[in-house]
Amino acid sequence: MTDQHLWSDDEHPGEVRASSSYWGWLIATLALGVIGVWVLVVRVYPGVPDPMPVHWNGAGVADGFTPKSLGEFIAIAGLGPFFCLVVFGIIEVVAAVNRGARPGDGAALEGQRRRSEGLAVTRKHLGWYLFAMSALVLALVARGYSGTSSRWDLLVFLVAVFALTAVLVVVATRDLPGPAARR
């Protein structure tokens, strides 16, 4: 059984259905965001100084501040997981638009099938990628507010993001069907 299903009949040309693992990653990302922010509020927020840092420079030194506020802290801590969930939403909108397209000729149908193949591969790998990105952002926020940050944190974060993205591109490219498979 594959992670994605492309309809092959004329009634649903190029339609992509998400697998249960895709929805599992979405739920895991949401849970990570909620639990991660809750842990930060309970363990880190009490030690956050007033005024509270809201921005750090490349060396890891706070250079932007605001009065300490639980709402502001939650907003900053939840920003990474929130944007990852927004990407999940965008992919669902793209899938819905793709389902609504009903091309009339063979060339248009072939184009829709190619888009559907790319969407299927994207959905197959997006879950683990966005979960890992959420975890990285929460870890960076935790280090920034816990007083254990170093000037290397941003570099380590960016290298991890680059490595994750490289793995995503490699595995997604490997899963795309070649020209012979499209015929």
Score class of each variant (00 low, 15 high):
R17D: 11
R17W: 04
R17I: 07
A18N: 05
A18W: 02
G24K: 09
G24F: 14
W25F: 15
W25A: 07
L26A: 12
A28H: 09
T29L: 09
T29A: 12
V39H: 08
V42C: 00
V42K: 07
V44W: 00
Y45E: 07
Y45T: 05
P46S: 11
G47C: 00
V48Q: 02
P49N: 07
D50N: 07
P51V: 11
G58P: 04
A59Y: 10
G60C: 07
D63M: 10
D63V: 13
D63E: 10
G64N: 07
F65T: 08
K68T: 08
F73T: 03
F73P: 02
A75N: 10
A75I: 06
G78R: 03
G78V: 10
G80C: 13
P81F: 04
P81D: 08
P81E: 06
F82Y: 10
F82V: 11
F82P: 03
F82G: 09
C84W: 02
L85M: 15
L85T: 10
V86S: 05
V86G: 06
F88I: 06
F88H: 06
F88N: 03
I90F: 14
I91N: 02
I91D: 02
E92Q: 07
V93S: 02
V94T: 05
A95C: 08
N98K: 00
R99N: 05
G100M: 13
G100V: 08
R102P: 12
P103N: 00
G104D: 14
D105K: 04
G106T: 07
A107P: 13
R114F: 06
R115C: 14
K124G: 04
G127V: 06
Y129I: 13
Y129V: 15
L130Y: 07
A132K: 01
S134I: 00
A135M: 08
L136V: 06
L136C: 08
A139K: 01
A139H: 03
R143T: 04
G144P: 03
G144L: 01
G147E: 13
T148I: 12
